[in-house]
Design a protein around this nucleic acid. Structure first.
Lengths: 192, 192
DNA sequence: ATAGTCATGGCACGTCGTGTCATCACTATG
DNA sequence: CATAGTGATGACACGACGTGCCATGACTAT
């Protein structure tokens, strides 16, 4: 036993998600969240930079995870090969420990609130920055690194959306492969 | 002469951009902006939904512009052809009337403030939604429409970044073409 | 024991953004 | 000329957000 009830951060996340689902993000105040978690308002802002961040906890490690996975990959892989091979493992690591149900409820809250969508876009932007740096570290030129990073994130985002739309079936790796195949088919269309 | 000094909105935009450059976004308060524009705080929020929006005025018409341009394009064009032909004209219309200097100063402010970057990402997201709908209206299937929309926006964003990095030379249409060519080259790389 | 550490509580405060009503110049209609 | 209507702005109160600062109190190390 600790000096305080342990798991304050997790209690805040749980209380916040529940309240957002019950009565909406805007209608939920920080004091309401902390009251349900048995804490005070000031403590909330010690754990999360702002009210929105409570839905994105744990994602601050994504850039580091991406950097590590890219550094571990065989140096011989080109950008598109790395995307094709690395996206599914990366997704598995990012979503590790979170249930499909949690992801669906979280998405429902985010989709209902433009301010939360904004924050989610920023998280993907940070992920893209990490990918871009990873590609550069592998010797890819600046423009290609930037493009490959954006392609990877876009494929990831669209695949996850489709995967959640179908409640997890087919599985995420298969959906990623389908999405990537569609991307290649589209961009390989002749311009004439 | 009107009953009030005309151009309140424009005065607010100008005062805000100047103050953001002088002392930063966070350090600038809305009363400071309105004082410089000769207005009151309440009036600021009648013109802009929040403090960040003052930097994105006029962009609310982008989705409609995109929809119109896509509807006017020859129906025979496939998604990638439409992107290749339509991106430069779209960019010209979106940036019409804004000087390179204005775009550079605006970007400097946005890049210095994550909250503003978030808002910019949301604007691009809305542009993507409009593109996606436009592709669907042209008979493109859902997945391809989504992918094509994201490809278009990504190409647009990266090209504009590169164009501004080089202070406008080469011109934007040429930079768009280069960026799109690099995108095709990357995605056409064999996976083996 | 005693000092140090660290998550939390409590409080004050500035800023943001909204609801509400008043003002006041101009416009339309008689 | 008179009167009612319109629309942008002013003025004020208020709740919520987010931060700075100091106090508390339980655990830890020596």
């Amino acid at each position: 036993m600790g000096r305080w009830q342990p798991g304050a951060r997790e209690r805040l996340e749980q209380a916040a998600l529940d309240l957002f689902l019950e009565q909406g993000f805007t209608e939920t105040t920080v004091p309401q969240i902390t009251a349900r978690a048995g804490l005070t308002t000031r403590t909330f802002f010690r754990h999360f930079a702002d009210k929105r961040e409570v839905l994105f906890a744990g994602e601050e490690m994504v850039p580091e995870q991406v950097a590590r996975l890219m550094a571990e990959a065989p140096p011989s892989l080109g950008p598109m090969e790395l995307i094709a091979e690395g996206l599914a493992p990366a997704a598995a690591e990012i979503f590790e420990g979170r249930s499909l149900d949690y992801l669906l409820r979280r998405r429902a809250v985010i989709d209902a609130e433009p301010a939360l969508h904004e924050r989610e876009l920023r998280k993907f932007s940070l992920m893209s920055k990490a990918l871009e740096q990873g590609f550069r570290d592998r010797g890819v030129d600046d423009l290609t690194a930037r493009l490959a990073a954006e392609i990877a994130v876009t494929t990831f985002r669209i695949a996850v959306t489709r995967w959640l739309d179908q409640h997890g079936d087919p599985d995420l790796p298969a959906t990623i492969n389908q999405t990537l195949a569609a991307m290649r088919h589209l961009t390989n269309t002749p311009s004439t």
